[in-house]
Design a binder for these strands. Sequence first.
DNA 1: AAGCACTGTGGAAGAATTGTGGAAGTCGCT
DNA 2: AGCGACTTCCACAATTCTTCCACAGTGCTT
Lengths: 223, 223
Amino acid sequence: MPEHVLVVEDEEKLAGLLRDYLAQEGYAVSVLHRGDEVEDFVRASPVDLVLLDLMLPGKSGLEVCKALRAASPQLSIIMVTARVDEVDRLLGLELGADDYICKPFSPREVVARVKAVLRRARRGSAAPDDGLVLDDAGFKASIGGRDLGLTAIEYQLLKVLHAQPGRIFTRDQLIDAMYRDERVVSDRTVDSHIKKLRRKIEAVQPGREVIHSLYGVGYKYEW
Amino acid sequence: MPEHVLVVEDEEKLAGLLRDYLAQEGYAVSVLHRGDEVEDFVRASPVDLVLLDLMLPGKSGLEVCKALRAASPQLSIIMVTARVDEVDRLLGLELGADDYICKPFSPREVVARVKAVLRRARRGSAAPDDGLVLDDAGFKASIGGRDLGLTAIEYQLLKVLHAQPGRIFTRDQLIDAMYRDERVVSDRTVDSHIKKLRRKIEAVQPGREVIHSLYGVGYKYEW
DNA sequence: AAGCACTGTGGAAGAATTGTGGAAGTCGCT
DNA sequence: AGCGACTTCCACAATTCTTCCACAGTGCTT
């Protein structure tokens, strides 16, 4: 079954060019020209990767990217930007794109990036067996059968981190993911919960640090 | 046997300048001033790369590009455009150009692009497979699977350099690209980060120098 | 060869970020 | 209301990172 790539690009010529190159590589390719059509399309079709222009009619690539990432954590997203200045680490992290391509680019370069991102996605999707079990029904997290005794927020935090091992989350991303309502909370609050989580994990399984800090960026789960 | 570059440029001064710079780099260089002479010349001589101005007497660069690509699929073509005009770029891409340079440019930039395109052509792939993987989601850079352990700024710096292999960046350009906020920082600070980057890359892959200094100009990434 | 300009390097100062204990506030329950 | 569990925030300590400096080394020019 071929992997499915969705190209979102308002410039007809470029969209066609990308479609042809990607199709030639054996991908199933769909093309949309407006930003506001993307989310519905992704919901309806099994898309593996979205090639997303930053400037789009209907809805900006930034908004689309954010929405896609929120709805589909496993979806690969490559942003296409007109200028290299637009790419900064915080913006990229907040939006959750997997890679960037700056114009002007060669179609071959795009194909190479698409391949690389999909390869990474395939590798990363194999869930590592770390013995951690998350039980949504009872809000219980356990390691090796031993309950961690987490509170609701701690459980939520661990769940978000654990869903994508190795991915780094900023504090703001974690806050957004933990609270459905748009609650305003100091980002240092995350640190407090991280502290408690670490302590409870340590109590059950001493010596193994699974939550890592990345200076200036955020936190990640890694076994 | 030196690689053969054909410069097609109607402006005498610019043509001469390019000829000199390229010759100094060890390329065999030919110069033509009219678009309608190019195809015959390429048929008769073993040209590896054509540096092609868009605006030419006799026959436009776009037409020439199209004809060349049809006749010689393996030939590398770099288009030179007067304006940062998206339409021209896309047209050119569709016609099969490998890269673009927009005026005004520095001769050194041209040389760098020529080198990069020829290197890619030799390897037969647009993607330079240097084993370096930049993972925005995980904020990690790794070579051959081994994490480099970069800080945020180091990652950003490497990413900028690596995005355009062969392109030379001045210290100021690198500072602009690394900091979104208009931070004021000594340009020698870049040197410090370069030093750390080199050390970390060296630790993972000894003996391969990928970050090069260009005396009086700046730094570039090249495998 | 000498002089100048630029780059490499170790390390110190201090700027920024994270860890931590605990106080204050909130919420639900009896 | 009173209690306990939980959440949030604060202040200070500990850690990590960035920046810059001074000097050594190297490349370029005359």
